[in-house]
C-alpha cells in the first residue's frame, strides 16, 4: 500500500518549455510529496524508460503533440511492454476532441487531461488526477477499466 507519506514518482514528457514549467509550478504549489522528472520529448522519455535499472514511475504524463516521438507512439510502445503494466499513463494535450480521447483510452491510456487555460484550474486538475491515480493504486481498483478524462 502506498500511504500518503510515500512519494509518488511522476514523469512528464512535453516539448513545450512553458507547459513543463506550469506543470512543475502547479505540483510545487500543491505541496504534495512527489518526485517529478521532466522530459523534453517522447524520444527522451523512451530512452530513459528503456533502462531496465530505473525505478518504475507511478504516473506518466504524455503530451500528444511532440516532435521526434509523439505521445501516441510513446503510449503504444509503453503499453506493449509488460514491464510497465502497473504504470498509469495520463495524456496531457491541447486537443479536446472526442476522437483523441477515445483513441488514447483504447490504446491503453488511463487519464486524459485537456490542458487548461488557467493556472488555478491546472492545479485543480493535477490534484484530482494525482488523487484518483492514488486511489487506483491504493484501493486495488481494476486497471483495465481505469479511465479518467478531465
Amino acid at each position: 500500500m502506498i500511504s500518503h507519506k510515500d512519494s509518488m514518482r511522476i514523469l512528464i514528457a512535453d516539448d513545450d518549455e512553458d507547459d513543463r514549467a506550469f506543470f512543475s509550478d502547479a505540483m510545487m504549489e500543491l505541496k504534495m510529496n512527489n518526485e517529478l522528472t521532466l522530459f523534453n520529448d517522447g524520444k527522451e522519455l523512451m530512452d530513459y524508460l528503456a533502462n531496465p535499472d530505473i525505478i518504475l514511475p507511478h504516473l506518466l504524463f504524455l503530451d500528444l503533440n511532440m516532435p521526434r516521438k509523439s505521445g501516441f507512439e510513446c503510449l503504444k510502445e509503453i503499453r506493449s511492454d509488460l514491464r510497465f503494466k502497473e504504470v498509469s499513463i495520463a495524456i496531457y494535450s491541447t486537443s479536446s476532441s472526442e476522437k483523441d480521447i477515445e483513441e488514447t483510452f483504447v490504446e491503453g491510456a488511463n487519464i486524459y487531461i485537456n490542458k487548461p487555460n488557467d493556472f488555478s484550474k491546472l492545479k485543480k486538475v493535477v490534484k484530482e488526477v494525482l488523487n484518483i491515480n492514488w486511489q487506483f493504486h491504493s484501493s486495488g481498483l481494476n486497471r483495465e477499466t481505469f479511465f479518467f478524462s478531465i
Binding site: D16, D18, F22, N65, T94, S95, S97, K115, P116, N117, D118, F119, S120, K121, L122
Partner: peptide, 21 residues
C-alpha cells in the same frame, strides 16, 4: 485553428492567470 492557434492563446491565458494570482 484547433491546435496551433489555441496553443499560444492558452499560454496567454495561463500567463494572465499567473500574473493575476
Amino acid at each position: 485553428v484547433s491546435h496551433d492557434l489555441q496553443e499560444p492563446l492558452r499560454k496567454i491565458q495561463m500567463f494572465i492567470s499567473r500574473i493575476e494570482s
